[in-house]
Amino acid sequence: MKRILSGVVAILLSGTAAFAADVYQPPIEPVPEQPVEVIQTSGWYLRGDVGYAWNNLRGANYYQGGPGGSITSFETADIDDSWVAGVGVGYQFNNYLRADITADYWGGADFTGSTLGNCGSVVGPCRSRDVTSVSAWSLMANAYVDIGTYGAFTPYVGAGIGATHVKWDKLRNTSCSIADPSQCDPTTGHDGESKWRFTYALMAGTAIDLTCNLKADVGYRFRQVDDGDMFGYANGGGPGSDEGFYIHEARAGLRYSFGSVCEVPYEPEPIVYK
């Protein structure tokens, strides 16, 4: 009997030990976070942009009739779309505020207009056809608010003020009879005018991280350029002036920053065993 009881106790003890081994779970140690190394330089950046411009001439006028004449609006006055390109230098103050100074060239936009009046040598009322082109340089001081960074994207809004040097080419004016368009006066040339004009701009877009220091910039810019002189006096007509421009631009460019704050995985120095 003692031998039987001893055997039963041994079997029970061995089963309990096996069950304890099955249910035991070792504690899970937390995985340490990957340390990062922060690299920071100055806040300056360079930028370059190109774009397409939808141009809207707000109107054009001219003086007609010599002494005692009057200022008259063009019957039609339109300019074509064109292109823009620019460079700039700026400073990133913090994660939300930056500013830059930019210089932009607005490529030549062709102008086509018409006027109603009398011809010189042709009998009857006439309609003129007026052609020229316009180009400009702009210098702008701009400020931007970076709304926040979402992955690789940083949307922003901005505004700028500055001046635009508008240059009109020579305007060529040909007046023809409305009743018989084949009967025309000789073409008259009016020297184009150039002048600096006040300009303001509104911008919106997004920056896209390409590397730590290099960003692509895709955005929209609206510019309003003030009115000014357009062409001079010739053959009893002129001078003329325009009422300014609305310019809508789709732009794309690159910004290289010397002041980005970059977080990169920290790699400790390798251990060398001797």
Rank of each mutant, 00 (worst) to 15 (best):
L202M: 15
R221V: 09
H248P: 06
F231E: 03
G238T: 11
D242Q: 05
L202K: 09
A207V: 05
D217P: 07
G236M: 07
F258Q: 02
G240S: 11
E269S: 07
A204F: 06
T199P: 06
C262G: 07
V225S: 06
G244A: 14
N213V: 04
R197F: 08
R223K: 12
R197E: 09
F231L: 07
V218R: 00
D242G: 02
A250Q: 01
R255E: 08
M203Q: 14
F231V: 07
L254A: 11
Y266T: 04
F245I: 03
D227A: 15
T199V: 10
A250H: 01
Q224N: 15
D217V: 08
A207G: 13
T211R: 14
S241P: 03
G232V: 02
S241Q: 07
A204P: 09
F198T: 05
S241H: 00
E267L: 09
A234P: 04
Y246A: 14
A252G: 15
R197I: 01
N235Q: 14
T199D: 09
F245H: 03
G219A: 01
E267T: 15
A250M: 13
I208E: 00
L214P: 06
Y266H: 05
D226P: 10
D217L: 01
R223W: 12
G232F: 11
L254H: 06
G253I: 02
I208K: 00
E243F: 05
E263S: 08
V261L: 08
S257L: 02
T206R: 00
A201C: 02
F198R: 09
T211S: 13
F245N: 02
G259S: 08
V225L: 08
A216M: 11
E243V: 06
A204L: 04
S194R: 08
W196V: 08
M230N: 07
F198Y: 11
G259W: 03
T211K: 09
T199I: 10
G240V: 07
S194N: 14
A207Y: 00
V225G: 09
G219E: 02
G259A: 02
G228S: 13
